[in-house]
């Protein structure tokens, strides 16, 4: 394979290194959450089809992130996981991993792509916990 000269290989590795660096900078810039300071008013919906439970409550909190707020909510059962707060139950309605029941965190009515500790609380925001079955 004479075509792969040392110079060409170095060039390819350099291009790859630049790509990785750009992705790293992009990841940092795009994922920096913008939290609001001060007290926010927002709603939290909790639904569990298994338990026939559905409730939406309006809250006020000075916490910057949903995870911080959920830690202060007495009904919320949680544990510290590898990615921050991990919800294990709400009001006695626990997850059941053997039957693939788990608590899904919602933001704006849609499944959140990040953990509760990375979801900034916003004034007028709507968040939720939904007990779902299946991975």
């Amino acid at each position: 394979m004479k075509r792969w000269t040392k110079r060409r290989k170095i060039a390819i590795v350099l291009v790859f290194a630049v790509l990785v660096a750009v992705a790293l900078i992009g990841a940092w810039a795009l994922n920096a959450p913008s939290a609001q300071a001060g007290v926010k008013r927002f709603t939290l919906s909790v639904t569990s089809g298994r338990d026939g439970y559905a409730q939406t409550v309006e809250y006020e909190s000075g916490e910057e992130y949903l995870g911080g707020f959920l830690r202060t909510l007495p009904a919320c059962e949680w544990q510290e996981g590898a990615y921050g707060l991990y919800v294990t139950g709400y009001g006695g309605m626990g997850e059941d991993l053997s039957a693939q029941y788990w608590w899904c965190i919602l933001e704006g009515g849609e499944m959140a792509a990040v953990g509760a500790d990375e979801i900034p609380l916003a004034e007028g925001g709507s968040y939720g916990l939904d007990l779902r079955q299946g991975w």
């Binding site: 992009g26 990841a27 849609e110």
Partner: peptide, 22 residues
């Protein structure tokens, strides 16, 4: 599921993709 969700999923996982690449 939703284009916005797919993009958010990708963006939030970008640091892991960089790690994966390395």
């Amino acid at each position: 599921v939703g284009p916005a969700y797919a993009v958010t999923y990708w963006v939030s996982g970008l640091p892991f993709d960089v790690w994966h690449a390395v």
